[in-house]
């Protein structure tokens, strides 16, 4: 009887180890594609960027406020469409939700030109080496990360925001509850 029990436990243990390895292998294989990409609920990775005025902006400095983190390019048509909504709502939600616009890999001249043309006043960080873009795994432009006051991602919006109301709804979601 003793022997039989021992054999049973031995087999169970070996099978358990093997099953664990197999499950792990299958799991990593299935999640290979999505690994490293951010999802709602994740902590937004901290970064620091210099804007057109030479000032640096670090994401963690915005803790306590909602952040509208927008990745864009001057050549991208949907980006042009959402900028006026963003500019308008930035003023309306000042102190509660801040906009951080990250231009991906373009020259200062182009970004300046664009900001003047659209009368943008919110900070625009220049991600010349595309490091922040890579950290956030952004593709395509525009992509917007709504970040809650506690620094976690509330929502990721891929593509342009056409309606002002869409942008407003996003602002509301990350507004600090006071």
């Amino acid at each position: 009887m003793e022997k039989k029990k021992k054999r049973f436990y031995m087999r169970t243990a070996i099978l358990a180890v093997l099953a664990g390895l197999v499950v792990y292998a299958l799991y990593t294989n299935v999640t290979k594609e999505s690994r490293g990409t951010l999802e709602a609920g994740d902590k937004a990775p901290d970064f620091v960027l210099t804007d057109l005025n030479g000032e640096t902006h670090q994401l963690s400095d915005y803790e306590g406020k909602g952040v509208f983190l927008n990745f864009w390019g001057t050549w991208c048509e949907p980006c042009k469409k959402e900028m006026p909504h963003m500019e308008k709502l930035a003023a309306e939600y000042e102190g509660e939700v801040e906009i951080l616009a990250v231009n991906v890999g373009e020259s200062e001249f182009q970004v300046n030109n664009f900001a003047e043309q659209y009368g943008l006043t919110f900070p625009i960080g220049l991600d010349s080496g595309k490091e922040v873009m890579d950290t956030y795994g952004v593709d395509p432009l525009p992509t917007t990360f709504m970040i809650k006051p506690d620094g976690t991602i509330e929502q990721i919006v891929i593509g342009g925001l056409v309606q002002e109301e869409q942008v407003r709804a996003l602002f509301e979601r990350v507004r600090p509850s006071s």
Partner: peptide
């Protein structure tokens, strides 16, 4: 070669190797 069932077959081969040898 990245499909779950192909990986599962390879895993089954591994398990078979261990147990049959033991």
């Amino acid at each position: 070669y990245n499909s779950v069932w192909f990986s599962a077959l390879i895993a089954a081969l591994g398990v078979s190797l261990v147990i049959a040898s033991l």
